[in-house]
Every structure is written in structure tokens, then in C-alpha cells.
């Protein structure tokens, strides 16, 4: 029995390790490739013979490289939409959980039902809307569809309903305004949920591809994924630079991931949130 157990445990570890290698190897290969120059990258050696950071200098520092701009664009878009989602989603969640008013159920259903409409479909009318209002090639154009997330509303409503009513009523008796009750009493109590929502929203917007691809046509307004997708073009594929770009695009996420791994895993498990 015990040998059986050890044996099965050993094979479990073996299987999991093999799979973990499959999962992690592409990342290693990407980083290794990013350290090779234009010639080395086509050579059969696994490890770079003269590892160097020239590729990073080329895409981050060289004049005319749009990469830093794309990086900033992605950061602006991800930060602004996240801030907006945090504010609005928690406000809506709070209102739906803590107020009673005619039409509440209908409004909740209305919001939740938008989860069923896939982005692939909405991009067409969004594009028409952006043309009508001349939002093309602006941060607002990239961000407006993501300013509020229906999923976040759902999540925040769940958490806001755990806030005790007594606390809110006590604040009202003290004469606090409704907005400051929300901001100073309710919000601090749902901090963990806000953290999870923030991380996921950031990741989702950092990685978003389809809509930015459509709305940003000037290279100066590309986000990182769109820039990366346009890296290879008429002048051939500079694989050493593509791999470097991919690495740079991942670094912020890997940092976010390592810092907030607990919240991320709990977030996935808790909600099944999709990025």
C-alpha cells in the first residue's frame, strides 16, 4: 500500500513536471531568443553564444522605435479603464445591493444580460459610433467600450450585499452624504474584492486585441498587442525583435502576477472571471 502510494505519487510528480515544462518552455525560449542577434537567432544553438541586450536597446531606446509609445498607450488604457471600472462597478453594485427602488430588478437584469453579447459582434456598431463621433485614434476611442464591466457589477453587488446595513444607517444619522457613505464606509469594506477586480481588469485591458486593432489605425496609437501583431511586415520578420517585443509586453504582467498571485488565483477560482 505505501509503496503503491509512493509510486503513484512519484509518477504524479513526473507527469506534472513534464507538463510544467511544456507550459513554461515557450517563455524560456522567448527570453533566450530575445538575447540573440539577427544572425544568431537562426543558428541551431539553444543558448545564445554572445547574449546581449542590444535587441532591448533597439526596441526601447532607438530613435523612431514606436515601442515605448505602445507601452505607454497600453499602460494609459489599462490604468484608466481599471480606475473607471473600479469606481462605476462598485457604485452600481452598491446601489443595487443597498437601495430599494422601483425597477431595481429590471436594471440588474438589463446589465447582466449584456454579458451575453460577444465583443466580436459589438465591434461593428462601435466602429460606426466612433466614426460618427470621430473617436478614432484616441485613447477615449480605445477605452470607451470597457469603461464599465457588467461582470464587475455582478461581482461587486455580491460583495456589497455583505456590508452591514446598520453601519450605513449609522452614518446617515450622523448626517453623512450618500456619496461619502459609499466612498468612506462601503468601499473600504470590500477592498479585497476591489483588488481582484482591479487586477483582472488591468490584465484584460493590457491584453485586449480585437477592438484596439480596429480602432487604432495610426501606429502612434497602437497598444502593445496591436504593435506586436504589426511588427512583422513587408520587410520580413525580424524574429529577434519580435521575441524581444513579446518579452517586454509580458514583463508588467509577470510582475503583476508574481506580486498578486494569491489574489489572481483566488479571483479565478472565486468568479471564473475572464480577462
Amino acid at each position: 500500500m505505501t509503496t503503491d502510494r509512493t509510486l503513484s505519487r512519484a509518477s504524479s510528480y513526473a507527469l506534472l513536471t513534464v507538463l510544467a515544462l511544456v507550459m513554461v518552455f515557450p517563455f524560456l525560449w522567448m527570453i533566450l531568443s530575445s538575447l540573440k542577434d539577427a544572425t544568431q537567432i537562426f543558428k541551431p544553438a539553444l543558448l545564445p553564444s554572445h547574449p546581449g541586450l542590444d535587441n532591448y536597446a533597439a526596441i526601447l531606446l532607438s530613435k523612431g522605435s514606436k515601442f515605448p509609445r505602445w507601452f505607454i498607450n497600453s499602460a494609459v488604457v489599462a490604468c484608466c479603464t481599471t480606475a473607471s471600472v473600479l469606481f462605476f462597478d462598485s457604485l452600481i453594485g452598491y446601489t443595487l445591493a443597498k437601495f430599494s427602488f422601483p425597477g431595481k430588478k429590471l436594471i440588474f437584469l438589463l446589465i447582466i444580460s449584456t454579458l451575453m453579447i460577444p465583443t466580436e459582434m459589438l465591434v461593428i456598431p462601435w466602429y460606426a459610433l466612433s466614426r460618427a463621433f470621430k473617436w478614432g485614434n484616441s485613447y477615449w476611442g480605445i477605452m470607451f467600450p470597457g469603461m464599465i464591466s457588467a461582470f464587475g457589477v455582478f461581482l461587486m453587488r455580491q460583495f456589497m450585499s455583505t456590508v452591514p446595513d446598520d453601519l450605513l444607517d449609522a452614518a446617515r444619522i450622523d448626517g453623512m452624504g450618500e456619496l461619502s457613505i459609499f466612498a468612506r464606509i462601503a468601499l473600504p469594506l470590500v477592498k479585497p474584492a476591489l483588488g481582484t477586480l482591479a487586477i483582472f481588469n488591468f490584465i484584460g485591458n493590457w491584453n485586449a486585441f480585437l477592438w484596439p486593432l480596429i480602432i487604432a489605425s495610426r501606429p502612434a496609437m497602437f497598444t502593445l498587442p496591436v504593435g506586436l501583431a504589426n511588427f512583422s511586415g513587408e520587410a520580413g520578420s525580424d524574429w529577434h525583435l519580435i521575441m524581444t517585443g513579446a518579452t517586454v509586453a509580458m514583463v508588467p504582467l509577470i510582475i503583476v502576477f508574481l506580486v498578486f498571485q494569491k489574489q489572481i488565483i483566488r479571483g479565478i477560482a472565486m468568479t471564473g472571471l475572464k480577462g
Binding site: A38, T39, F42, E234, A235, G236, S237, W239
Partner: peptide, 13 residues
């Protein structure tokens, strides 16, 4: 082959 002709020629492949 090697992504495309330009890449292959530049890479001396």
C-alpha cells in the same frame, strides 16, 4: 519557408 522570402534571404537561408 523561414517565414517568408525576405526573412530567409536576410537570414542567409
Amino acid at each position: 519557408f523561414s517565414t517568408d522570402d525576405v526573412t530567409a534571404f536576410k537570414a542567409q537561408l
